[in-house]
Amino acid sequence: MKSEKRTGMRITVNCRECLEQLELYLVGALPEDEAAAVRFHLHTCQTCAAEAATYAPIIEALHYTPPLVAAPPTLVERVAALPAQHPRAAAHPHRTRWPSWNTLAAVLVIGLLFANIWLYRNWRTAQTELQQQRNLIAHLAEEQWRAVHLNVDEPLQTAPVQAAFYYSEDDPTAPGYLIIRNLPPPPAGKAYQLWLIRPDGVRDSGGLFRGGETVVLPVEPPTSWHAYQELGVTIEPAEGSPGPTGPRVLNGGL
């Protein structure tokens, strides 16, 4: 892509470049940075988005092309046993409210305490953090926030980890917040990396973080939360990775 322009961390493309790469993007053949540029352009250009839409039935149909193979009886038995193995609590189809507002407030107060300690060591930087915490409390106290409980995957299942992601349904372009309790530190030279997963399988990085008693990570959606289907957290090199390479430790659907 000869005429890519980098603005900060983002590569931008024009209409011609977008259309040149459109088919590659739609089947997932572009590297993440180039895919992000095409994705961003499609969200801002109705002409190119209309061209992309002409491929929607083709992309859907690709999912239906694998040869049909009968599931083994053992798999049928395993799936049939799932409701008994994972009994449902009170049904609440769309919203998982975790933690309670009181618990959330307590968690955030702890976060504020840590922010104040940091303030003592680096006043100018901590002041910004403090404001973020206050903003977070104010934001999350509003009703439109949706809480998504994250599942803990095998590498962390021995730790008492609780994680939830909050985002606004009223304003899906507003920052969301990943809140994790009791997250053990990553291995030496590693960091946790949040991934925002689109329906087509493309992953956008949501940021790097380390473990701690309480982790509060503000996450800016590259476009809109409605563009994403799932979240995942993996263990990656400390400087981050352009795509997930390490073991997944948390996951959840939006």
Partner: peptide
């Protein structure tokens, strides 16, 4: 693979029938 029966052939769902 040149399977005679793909996922879409198992359903009456009117998804676009695509043959690679």
């Amino acid at each position: 693979e040149t399977a005679n029966r793909t996922i879409w052939q198992a359903f009456e769902d009117d998804v676009l029938r695509l043959s690679l």
